[in-house]
Amino acid sequence: MSASPSYGSRPWTFYVLAALFTLFVIFLYGPMIAVLILSFQGPSASLVFPLRDPSLMWFHELFSPRRTGDVAGAFNRSLPLALIVMFLTVLISVTAGFAFRRRFRGSTAIFYMAIASLIVPGLVLSIGILVTFRYLGLTASWWGSALGAHLSWALPFGLLIMFAVLGRLNPSYEEAAHDLGASRWQTVKDVVVPIVFPGMIAVALFGFTLSYDEFPRSWLTVGTKNTLPLEIWTMTTNVTSPALYALGTVTTIVSFAVIALALSSILIIQRKRSRGK
């Protein structure tokens, strides 16, 4: 009897890889889920499982500066900072992307310099910025030195995305627009920007999340008032209540909300294009 013919049954490697992937997912989301659950801890204030008398008390606690530090204040700095970084990253990446489409003198050097800031350790950069600000007699602040530090991190990502997006943009779209009487500005406004808009959303997403989560580059550059990651770090050293978990849950939800917003707007645009209005 010869071997029975195979009709696409799965090889054993499938099950090995599936198991591996399951482990990976558990490792990735398990801690997050544990934090999420424990943030609903009851008055026992235990930092470990089991969960007893679930309540929202630690979320209330979170917003009373008396015990947990200035979380609300930190959030009120981190959010605008992330939004400013997002806006500037999109603006600079898109315009730089256009400039880099027509190769100019020194464009390669500028590109590598921008990418190099990804390699510089964030803490070192943070120290460097602080020292430079001191030397120039400037005060470090979240809207000044920290903004610059965050841009040095978010911009290279934005640039790389825009290069990929604009690299795939067929130049004949612009030529067709020119052929049909569009001015340069009309071509950008009515043809190029709408076509690359999903890419711009991706850049915005990177700009926002990279800034919102950034610790090393914020460390010495925010001045006297902490951003959210720094505040959380401070809390881990002196707060020993589930309020810490509540904070983790809230910040994660904000991040997820931003990502969901961005992805759904990309999806809506793509659906509109493939299905018609």
Partner: peptide, 28 residues
């Protein structure tokens, strides 16, 4: 007074075909 038809047609992917055809008029 020329008009060009591109090899890949270069129809604008974000516009309906009616708005593609109307593009020249919109620009004017």
């Amino acid at each position: 007074g020329t008009a060009m038809m591109f090899q890949s047609y270069a129809l604008f992917p974000h516009l309906t075909i009616q708005d593609n055809v109307a593009f020249y008029l919109k620009m004017r």
